[in-house]
Amino acid sequence: MTSDNLVTVTVIGLGAMGRALAGAFLDAGHPTTVWNRSTGKGDDLVARGAVLAASAEEAVRASELTVVCVVDYDASQAVLDPLAEALAGRVLVNLTSDSPERARAAAAWADEHGIAYLDGAVMVPTPLVGGPEALILYAGSRPAFEKYESTLKALAGQAAHLGEDHTLAAVHDLSMLDFFYASISGLVHAFALAREDKVAATALAPYLNAITSILPPIAAGMATAIDEGNYDGEQANLSMMTASVDHLLHMSRDRGLDTGHLEAIKAVADRAIAKGHGADDWASTIEALKG
């Protein structure tokens, strides 16, 4: 883009992520207005060329595209509700994390007030915002996304539109975070288990690459198996793998470690086996997650 056709943007919410988003717009040359509910934030952005608006309404009216990123949808709607008239006819991108139900309600509010609405989810930490590998997911108005796709790519090189259903970004976001938090919690427990036997976390970490490197093909294969309902356990079946969970439980209990997550894993696996999936792949445990 040339300086003549750079889109004017507004960022509402100057927490760590909001500041990163505004900074990415500034780095890309977009005229950027910022506003935060509490004072004392945004001076660093102003020093880089942003305009600090005196009010949320002033911020919205300054730009054709507004991005909001606050703690949750209670906070975002508290800011946005009085701005319905100012936002009418403009595009609003909500990068606040919350549930699919809250996304649907926000979309209904936007539609009622004539606001083109995109619900989104930032899938990277703040240091990666603006980079080519960063990923932000969007759902909602396709015309709005297509019009501003190049602008939104200032925030993340990977800007994916998932569909017109406004809940899709939140569904993807929380599903991916489900995997992330379960994974890092398991990692901490693994370090704790090793530490109990005098093995340092830094000694164990290099060997964990043998596990992490096989996760992408496992994810792809498991996704196909689940979508097709075909849980071929020829390579490794659930009964065999559940025995390994038993070993982990015994070792953890012997060392006085919390075993809550392992007991939950074992309970789901046992239910799947009881349903006849003992000879199937671990993916079959999805059939036991609802009891």
Rank of each mutant, 00 (worst) to 15 (best):
G131F: 00
G131A: 14
P132R: 11
P132Y: 07
P132W: 07
E133D: 12
A134V: 08
L135M: 14
I136S: 06
L137D: 03
G140W: 07
G140V: 08
G140R: 10
G140C: 07
P143K: 07
A144H: 04
F145D: 01
K147G: 10
Y148R: 06
T151E: 06
L152R: 04
A154M: 06
L155T: 04
A156V: 11
G157Q: 09
A160K: 15
L162M: 12
L162A: 10
L162F: 12
G163E: 11
D165V: 05
L168P: 05
A169D: 09
A169I: 05
A170H: 10
A170F: 00
V171Y: 07
V171D: 06
H172L: 05
L174T: 14
L174N: 05
S175Q: 10
S175W: 03
L177M: 13
D178M: 13
D178A: 09
D178S: 13
Y181E: 01
Y181H: 04
S185C: 04
G186T: 05
A190T: 11
L193S: 13
L193H: 04
R195F: 01
E196C: 02
K198R: 08
K198Y: 01
V199S: 02
T202L: 03
L204Y: 02
Y207K: 06
Y207Q: 10
L208M: 15
L208S: 08
L208H: 00
A210Y: 10
A210Q: 13
T212L: 14
T212C: 08
S213D: 15
L215V: 14
P216D: 08
A220Q: 12
A220Y: 05
G221W: 00
A223H: 14
A225W: 03
I226M: 13
N230I: 12
Y231M: 03
Y231R: 05
Y231V: 05
E234R: 15
Q235D: 14
N237K: 09
T242S: 13
